[in-house]
Nucleic acid binder design. Structure first.
Lengths: 104, 104
DNA sequence: CGCATCGTTCAAAGAACATTGGATAATGCG
DNA sequence: CGCATTATCCAATGTTCTTTGAACGATGCG
């Protein structure tokens, strides 16, 4: 398995982050990761209704947008939010998205 | 010309707003509108490099996402940001987007 | 009225995106 | 080793988005 690539947040365009977060499935993934805290999540156990391939795709999009971090652990991958880094690059963005009320 | 429809912000999904803002052209439009303040902008004078039709399309997307308000004035339309309303529905979101540094 | 201005609408084309199913790779356990 | 688990990759399909150019509609001015 090739090393997982995580982009420098300084190089990530704002539009890429917004695009990554603009999909309801991915928004739900991010919310689950937020609830899981620093413990992180195994992709398969995220509890989002989507096929294995679709999930893999969405995680890839989120990773390339600098939203999440993935660490191999056994056959699984522990996924966490890049909270502090994101908040450094886009202050207030993640919090406003995570705390939004109403329809997703 | 039919009355321009502006959605109630409570009914606008977060993902719709993020999708509207995730396009670089539309992000630039929003930034110009922010600079114009409460005075507003005439679409054609927005100074964004896009065709008339493309601009109309982008304004429509932004309007349907509740991001902008348009008011007929003569043959033109005065466009303004729905700042306060947006900040009520998604506290901190617009500010974080508008004040973001780095690549768009 | 005649005409220019500003914007919307329509159809068409191309690009980008989401989803699926099957194949593949890597790890850990018995 | 053989097998289950976890996740990625690939090709294919269908959908959505973006853009263009042409046609149309509404408004205001002379």
């Amino acid at each position: 398995m090739p090393t997982i690539h995580h982009p420098e947040l300084d190089t990530v365009p704002l539009s890429a982050v917004l695009a990554a977060l603009s999909d309801p499935t991915r928004l739900e993934i991010v919310k689950r990761l937020d609830e899981s805290g620093s413990v992180g999540c195994v992709c398969a156990d995220i509890g989002v209704d989507a096929s294995k391939s679709a999930l893999s795709h969405h995680f890839k999009v989120l990773r390339q947008a600098g939203v999440i971090h993935q660490e191999p652990q056994g056959t699984a991958r522990i996924t966490t939010l890049r909270r502090e880094e994101l908040d450094g690059r886009f202050p207030g963005l993640l919090v406003s998205v995570l705390s939004a009320e109403g329809p997703v």
